[in-house]
Amino acid sequence: MIRFEQACVTYPNGVVGMKDLDLTIDDGEFVVIVGLSGAGKSTLIRAINGLVPLTSGRLDVNGRDVTKLNRSGLRELRSGIGMIFQGFNLVDRTTVLKNVLMGRLHEVPTWRTLIGRYPAADIDLAARALQRVEILEKAYSRASDLSGGQRQRVGIARALAQEPAIILADEPVASLDPPTSHVVMRYLQQISRELGITTIVNLHFLDLATAYADRIIGLRDGVLVFDGPGSDADEQVFESIYGRSLTADDTMTKHAAL
């Protein structure tokens, strides 16, 4: 369970990323966070694994108070939280398998990491993760040789290899074309449902959000302005999130038709 209580984040340059947030996310939920860029979506996601520290307030993740964790406590917390990125964040010069094994770093002894000899059990886990997103045959390809959609599947496999309780996805489809976006979203949804992994996804296309989310959270200027099931999120709700009426730019399908 993830629980924010009166959580605030103010960046050193004065920008407010999160303001008095009260939010509880239960185990196994599939939550989509929507909002304009700069609304605090990335801040919320990165607060959960401690990449962005709270300025004030409280945040419990799986019973641990994130604000009180030291460096090794944070590593411990992060090892149970998989993360997926907009720019994939793969090491292009190395193999797909080595990239997925990055998800096992917390468990693998340092000396083994340094000489690049991973235990067979971890390689097996990485292979299973690749199999789960149907890209096992690319295990020994260089990451730079893959298409955008394939790369993001490797990103998902890397997160899965952690055997996480929570997956955070920060704009996972923003660099992809519409059909590929749906493929990636379907994988995320399946994984969440079948493995019971709490999944939190940032999106800025509204139709994708309503199509996949069990629950939608709307942010505007760091403040929570909507929290409800996807079916409740009608045009009026989105206007309150975006602060203006919707345009073709806000949905993916119309966007693609342009």
Binding site: N49, L51, L74, R75, E76, L77, R78, S79, G80, I81, G82, M83, F85, G87, F88, N89, L90, V91, D92, R93, T94, K98, L101, M102, G103, L105, H106, V108, T110, T113, L114, G116, R158, Q162, L168
Partner: peptide
Amino acid sequence: IDMGPIEAANAAGASLPKMLRTAVVPQILP
């Protein structure tokens, strides 16, 4: 170098030497 893999390694709970070995060294090795 590309800072993305560094963020990914940190987000996976890697310690500093592990992060440097897996996210940085492969980028500069050639």
